[in-house]
Design a protein around this nucleic acid. Structure first.
Length: 409
DNA sequence: TCGCCTACCACATTTGAATAGA
DNA sequence: ATCTATTCAAATGTGGTAGGCG
């Protein structure tokens, strides 16, 4: 995967989209009580950016309350549909591999995180409808803590075991097809199978950074970019699927999860007994993005629709340019800026990365969410707390900013 | 002592280049 | 000469496991 740092090392390891956090501390609320709600939902995390979204800032500024979260995984039936908050009327998302997720969720999904980054399995694979076929959109995915607790496997179930670690810098995975037209996104399911999770706070690859033994919830965001080099972003839509909640681990704790993973993940075939295959419809994680090949062949986006990037994005190498056209910096058409030779290749990929993803680091905004912004570990401090080596304009009220907002959900 | 993390392993899959055949 | 199918090797992803660390 290419990371912005590889392209523009002067920009640092991450993009801070929010203002510095002078008063940030690392304490979590007591939490752990039933009915704990998504902290990000209770308070606009990036109010500053939403003001730049002209479509319906009011909708985003006042997110509807969400139902309380369950105290533990696998204890309640998953809702029938995704919970959504958006300002894109008529747009809806459905989880393609819902049955697989539900099966994992019924046991208590665990996701391995490693220093080098580990893919999610199952991956989030969604279908979208209701988009304007002509308009361009970005697909984003992030993972947020569900509560303020650390968990421990007690032999039979997961139970809270103390306060959560200080929250890490939020990163957002941008689907490599972004930006693409609504027609492109609606043509076939959109998969985030290349997302990698890491527990390395120094991760230079742009993987999503998580704490081990914490509960997380993936979220999918859809952002309309009015035009390729838009100065205005249209609506945003955010979705979460409760059955995709998981606990991050460095080694599987629940043997049932191990068996499910081995049975369902083709890469783990070597651990299957008698070469048995997973029944439910074959590999459930295949995708247009080349998730699992035996199910669906890779389909490259049509050049005229997906990220054509006819010109150097918005004035050349800049954070704004990257944020506007993340896909244009990956898989690198010849007209795009070349990578800095000092970053020859991400260590975890020995070859070119045609589907490489982009990441944004989003910083908790002011205004106090349920989780106060944690003070990042020292290596991040210069980027996240002091504005980083580049300046990214911070929009005032009514201003428009060409960077992704982190929807409130 | 215990819980957690890391590095390494073997195995299967994926991917792309090279080659052969139509 | 071009296209398609096949083969092969390297890269990648997977869970298991032993050992280290706090």
């Amino acid at each position: 995967m290419y990371h912005p740092q590889e392209l523009y090392p002067s920009l640092g390891t991450s993009y801070r989209l929010g203002p510095p956090q002078p008063g940030a501390d690392s304490s979590f609320p007591p939490a752990l009580a039933e009915g704990y709600c998504y902290p990000d939902l209770n308070s606009p995390k990036l109010d500053c950016f939403l003001s730049g979204i002209e479509a319906t800032p009011h909708t985003l500024a006042a997110p509807p309350p969400l139902p309380p979260l369950p105290p533990a995984l696998g204890t309640e039936p998953a809702p029938a549909a995704a919970e959504a908050l958006h300002s894109l009327p008529g747009v809806s998302l459905s989880l393609e591999n819902r049955e697989l997720w539900k099966e994992f969720n019924s046991v208590g999904t665990e996701m391995i995180i490693t220093k080098a980054g580990r893919r999610m399995f199952p991956a989030c694979r969604v279908s979208v409808t209701g988009l304007d076929p002509e308009a361009r959109y970005l697909f984003l995915l992030d993972v947020v803590p569900v509560d303020g607790a650390r968990y421990r496997w007690q032999g039979q179930r997961w139970e809270p075991s103390g306060k959560a670690e200080p929250r890490l810098p939020d990163r957002v995975y941008i689907h490599p097809d972004s930006p693409a037209t609504g027609a492109h996104w609606m043509r076939q399911p959109v998969s985030f199978h290349r997302v990698k999770l890491t527990n390395s706070t120094l991760d230079p690859h742009g993987h999503l950074i998580l704490h081990s033994m914490h509960k997380y919830q993936p979220r999918v965001h859809l952002v309309q970019a009015a035009q390729l080099c838009s100065q205005h972003w249209g609506g945003v839509a955010s979705f979460r699927f409760p059955e995709t909640m998981f606990i991050s681990v460095t080694a599987y704790q629940n043997p049932q999860i191990t068996q499910l993973k081995i049975a369902a993940n083709p890469f783990a075939k070597g651990f299957r007994e008698n070469g048995r295959n997973y029944a439910p419809g074959g590999p459930c994680d295949s995708t247009l993005g080349g998730d699992i090949r035996e199910s669906e062949p890779e389909q490259a986006p049509e050049p005229q629709e997906a990220a054509p990037a006819p010109a150097p994005p918005c004035g050349g190498p800049s954070a704004e340019a990257y944020l506007l056209h993340p896909a244009a910096f990956h898989g690198a058409p010849s007209h795009l800026p070349t990578r800095n030779p000092s970053f020859p290749e991400a260590p975890d990929s020995g070859r070119s990365a045609p589907y490489s993803a982009a990441f944004l680091d989003l910083h908790s905004g002011p205004g106090g969410s349920g989780y106060p912004a944690a003070v990042p570990p020292a290596p991040f401090a210069s980027h996240f707390l002091q504005g980083g080596p580049f300046s990214l304009s911070y929009p005032g009220p009514g201003a428009c900013l060409d960077v992704g907002s982190k929807p409130m959900f």
